[in-house]
Computed example of a mutant assay.
Amino acid sequence: MAVITFANTKGGAGKTTAALLLTTELLHRNYRVCVIDADPQRWFSKWYEGASLMPRLTVETYVSAPTIQKIVHERRSQWDFVIIDLPGIQSPLLASAVGLSDHVLVPIQGSSMDAQGGAQVLDLLRYLDRKAGISIPHSVVLSRVNPAITTRSMQAVQRLLSEQQIHVLDTPIAERGAFREMFDLHRPLRKLDGALTASGEKAVLNAEAFVQEVLTLVKTGVKQPPAYAQTRIMPELETAA
């Protein structure tokens, strides 16, 4: 049905958390999901190995740039969604995975370092659009956002992304204990013991809104303006914090 790739060349940007939230919410909606865990840290695979059996989920690991194309083409005909979690480093997998994607999601925290990692992904998308005529829909998702306050750095990143006409999801992924507990306990968000508490319900609502927005973008095939409409924003982002 669709291939969705999470990419940021800086580790710790929230890629795997976003990928896990999307995956488990899709499973909750009875979709069949294949995750390609291309991150050498294997955080998604480790979560999967410790989780209860999930018949509608499979996880592929130890993929490489030469093999990912074959794997994606085979899996997308067998599963409703293929979700790719890329390494948080510069990797040959980036160009291969991006070129196979129906939508690329770039998680960025409210800091200049995270923005730099996201900028490298957006640069590649811009290059493919201008030089090869390959326009790949993509969006930035703000991650690990403090739900109580908006920091000066986050405001600066949001403003600069908007000025460059880079599509940003309306739903940021908040910094919530429940999202960390998913990895600690190897459970989907809705299966956590505190899922019915006020804090747990807020986490579920956040995940629902995030996934619904992604599904709307993928199903409608919405195309976004190319990354970096005219110029790079890195010099400004580096001093935004």
Rank of each mutant, 00 (worst) to 15 (best):
Q78M: 08
Y31H: 15
L160V: 11
V222E: 12
E213C: 09
R159V: 02
L169Q: 07
I83D: 02
Y228I: 00
H138M: 07
A2H: 13
R159W: 01
D114S: 14
R152F: 07
V145Q: 09
A198M: 10
I71Y: 03
L20N: 01
P172Q: 01
P147L: 10
T58Y: 01
Q78H: 06
I4N: 07
W47Q: 08
V63E: 11
Q41F: 07
D85Q: 10
S199C: 03
Q230A: 10
P172H: 02
L27F: 11
Q155P: 01
V204Q: 15
R56W: 02
T5I: 12
A229L: 07
T23K: 07
T171W: 04
L122A: 05
P147D: 10
K191G: 00
L217S: 08
K46N: 13
F44E: 04
V140C: 02
A65C: 05
V72K: 05
N8Q: 06
V211N: 00
Q224F: 15
Y127W: 12
S143E: 06
R130E: 13
K219A: 11
W43P: 12
S112K: 12
V141N: 05
L217E: 09
I4T: 10
Q90M: 14
R130F: 00
Y48S: 02
K15L: 03
G118Y: 00
E213L: 09
L122C: 08
R152Y: 08
P66W: 06
S112Y: 11
Q230Y: 01
A19E: 05
L128M: 15
L100F: 08
I134D: 10
E236G: 00
L93I: 14
Q120K: 13
M182R: 02
D193K: 12
S139R: 05
P137I: 03
L192S: 07
K191P: 00
T197I: 08
P66N: 04
L237H: 03
P40W: 14
S162L: 08
M182Q: 02
V82F: 05
Q155T: 14
A51R: 10
Q90R: 12
P92W: 10
V98A: 14
A2N: 13
W79E: 13
D39A: 11
D85K: 08
T150A: 06
D123F: 13
L57I: 04
L105T: 01
A156E: 08
